[in-house]
């Protein structure tokens, strides 16, 4: 997904001279083809993330469309003030490409994983937050990023993830995509959790439970047309590779409460604690019950407790 995303920056930069790429100190060879072909639009500016954001703001004020890339947690934790004041306040078209959202960097430990990036940025006015489910969806998203008026945070998954998105569904920033119809349960997710949600729905179907799955790739603005879909379900479930504080689950509860809609909601996500564990993303998600088996059990338990 990351490779596809960066190749799309190269492709966009070819047709639009105002598109530029700004990396920190990325892996050797990153976007080498772009560096060779479009050296005037390629920047690798060192381990100075706060400066990268400020420079991107200055260039955006002068008509450029900067795509800034580094590790998710280094963008969000370290540069929150630059993002708020330099990008969101003047509403500049800077795109933040965040490597390793969630537990992708599980083996590297809690300095590198991020469980609160969406919570932090969701609270900033003017920010748009997108987390595609797979590489083809990333391509469809990137095509739309050039003309989007304000800042965008693009959360990348691990790469090599199973394909779940479909060409025929198209892609619009801010519009959730129905991947599976269902009547009992409505399962909402994004990123790599979409694939797990589809597997969960298949397991539930074996138990005679009808489960719809929506890909909520845009966390902000959250698609308001989900309200009518949620109203029709017995149980709304959110599944995310993010803290239970401030992510999709929180956004869904806010939307429901603000609309005066009282629904049974089950939120699945990362607990409010640092992991203190390593292993792989897969292992950590499974350990937290965020695999198809664990999710379908939690959903069945919750359904059994409903009136």
């Amino acid at each position: 997904m990351r490779r596809v995303c960066l190749e799309m920056v190269h492709q966009l930069a070819r047709s639009q001279r105002q598109v530029i790429f700004i990396g920190s100190d990325l892996g050797s060879g990153t976007l080498q083809a772009m560096q060779k072909e479009l050296p005037e639009q390629f920047f690798m500016e060192g381990i100075a993330e706060q400066n990268l954001i400020g420079v991107a703001a200055g260039m955006a004020m002068e008509g450029y469309i900067p795509y800034v890339n580094t590790i998710a947690t280094f963008i969000t934790r370290r540069c929150l003030e630059q993002i708020a004041v330099d990008l969101c306040l003047p509403n500049l078209p800077v795109r933040l490409i965040a490597n390793g959202g969630g537990l992708v960097y599980a083996p590297l430990g809690p300095t590198h994983t991020t469980q609160e990036d969406i919570a932090l940025l969701r609270a900033l006015p003017n920010m748009t937050i997108v987390a595609p489910a797979d590489a083809p969806e990333m391509t469809r998203l990137m095509e739309q990023t050039v003309d989007w008026p304000g800042p965008i945070y693009i959360r990348l998954a691990k790469g090599g993830d199973p394909l779940v998105s479909r060409q025929e569904d198209g892609f619009r920033i801010g519009q959730a995509i129905c991947l599976r119809q269902g009547t009992d349960v409505l399962l909402l997710s994004y990123g790599v959790m979409v694939q797990r949600s589809l597997q969960t729905a298949a397991l539930l179907a074996e138990q005679g439970i009808s489960c719809a799955v929506y890909n909520c790739h845009t966390l902000k603005p959250l698609d308001s047309s989900l309200l009518s879909v949620m109203a029709a379900a017995r149980l709304v479930v959110t599944a995310e590779e993010h803290s239970l504080i401030g992510g999709l689950g929180s956004a869904v509860l806010e939307m429901l409460m603000d609309a005066g809609l009282l629904k049974a909601v089950l939120r699945l996500g990362l607990p409010d604690q640092f992991p203190h564990r390593y292993g792989s993303q897969e292992q950590q998600l499974a350990g937290l019950g965020l695999d198809a088996e664990g999710m379908s059990q939690r959903i069945q338990q919750r359904l059994a407790g409903l009136p």
Binding site: Q50, N51, I53, G54, V55, A56, A57, G58, M59, A60, M61, E62, G63, Y64, E81, Q82, V85, D86
Partner: peptide, 17 residues
């Protein structure tokens, strides 16, 4: 107003120019 931002923004503007 938040200090330490202006030189980066100015550098971005200067690089654009």
């Amino acid at each position: 107003g938040a200090l330490g931002h202006g030189l980066s923004i100015a550098a971005g503007m200067a690089l654009a120019a």
